[in-house]
């Protein structure tokens, strides 16, 4: 494994990074044992392993962490969280990293951000998620050509009756722009108000 040298005297260090992500500050107690990395099935594909990322968070390397793909490769399996000998709620902190990256619009992982956004749009609008509609919305928001890789799956799902094209052409106007009152609009708005109060 190659070693990367990080400049700890750089003015970009953000000492408030850890507290902003994990207000209980338990993350400070990380002993760098590496159990999280050893437990993580997607660690091999990450540029920083979970253990490295937690150290970078402690050091305040906010830009580097938020611009990495590490936390977007988390499949939310909770293995690290249940095994961390310090009992640090690691997956909650990964959730906070995703929120921060989305809120500050940083990060290279457009697919993930579009996926999460499209999903929550559908929940807010209809209350429940119709998977076909959601996937269409997601693929339209990313790269229309990326849908091609999923066409065989889509056809197989149709054949097994897993998706139905409900309402046929009526789908089109539903997919273009969200207008009018959504099923969970009031609840979403109330949560936004409550969060703004803090």
């Amino acid at each position: 494994m190659t070693q990367e040298i990080l400049d700890l005297t750089a003015p970009t260090l953000d000492r408030s990074f850890l507290v902003a992500l994990a207000p209980d500050e338990k993350l400070r107690t990380c002993i760098q044992c590496g159990t999280c990395t050893a437990s993580c099935a997607s660690a091999y594909a990450m540029e920083y392993t979970p253990r490295q990322m937690w150290r970078m968070v402690q050091l305040g390397l906010k830009e580097e962490v938020l611009n990495s793909k590490t936390f977007w490769l988390c499949s939310t399996c909770y293995s690290c969280s249940v095994r961390c000998p310090r009992g640090i709620p690691l997956l909650e902190t990964i959730g906070a990293l995703k929120r921060m990256a989305i809120a500050e619009r940083i990060g290279p992982y457009k697919e993930s951000i579009n996926f999460y956004r499209a999903f929550m749009d559908v929940v807010r609008r209809y209350g429940r998620v119709d998977e076909l509609e959601f996937m269409t919305r997601y693929f339209l928001s990313t790269n229309i050509f990326s849908i091609i890789g999923y066409v065989p799956l889509g056809l197989a799902m149709l054949m097994h009756g897993k998706v139905t094209i409900k309402g046929g052409l009526r789908m089109a106007p539903r997919l273009v722009g969200i207008s009018g009152a959504g099923r969970l609009d009031a609840l979403f708005r109330k949560v936004e108000e409550l969060e703004a109060e803090q």
Partner: peptide, 24 residues
């Protein structure tokens, strides 16, 4: 009248929302 629990997605928008959706 159940609605979506937010899957693993609600918490990328808001921590409170990720609790409110299943609490509903």
């Amino acid at each position: 009248d159940w609605t979506c629990c937010g899957a693993s997605t609600a918490e990328t928008v808001s921590f409170l929302l990720s609790l409110v959706l299943p609490a509903r």
